[in-house]
Amino acid sequence: MDETEIRRLSVGHVLCGLAVLFSLCVPPLLLDEFSLLGTHLTWLCICSVCVVTVNVLLRLTLKPNPSTKRSSFAHKVNKLKQSGLYFFVSCLLFHGIIVLYGAPLIESIWETFLFAVLLSSFTTSRCLCILGPNFHAWIRVFSKDGAMSVWDHSLQITTICSIVGAWLGAFPIPLDWDRPWQVWPISCSLGATFGYVVGLLLAPFWIYWNRKRLTYKSR
């Protein structure tokens, strides 16, 4: 838990934030008739792809949790497969939860599913990249006092922020303002994105602020 680790983490976070920014700024230059509100589904796809790609790249370059034992190529492929499966299951799970929250079951099913994909790419893909497809590790990280490294903490913060963001994003929907961004799922996905970015910015500072306490606890 030294300064360099925090610095590496900040670089990673900045890159993740840039991925979101990229998905907002670049498509209008390349695609005609692209707008965040008008063609929201396209944006959802682009943003999820960007975020997942950056996460995978970071995993390859920064190596957050270096595993002690070397693994064979076959093992790696296996892990990759498993990760893909986990990601897909988490998309379905998010979709289910969103439907339970009251999203329509049949109409606008694509909106719901792509929103679930976006949430998964904000949360699950990061988990997969940092912790690997290891369910017990996930439960450990997401329970009280379970984080054991800087990366775990940043994971906790960004995940909670994006989910809370999505949760809060649902609140304006019942208001009778008739704004374009109140359409399902725009406010929620914007909330999730906003929460994610805030989490990315917040995490390094929070960890830096509490570094003494954290070093003590992770031992």
């Binding site: 339970l100 929250y101 009251g102 649902a170 929907i173 019942p174 208001l175 009778d176």
Partner: peptide
Amino acid sequence: SFIEEEHQTWYFLIN
């Protein structure tokens, strides 16, 4: 609006 749609608030909360 939140009064008119109060049920949404409660469904959301119990969920």
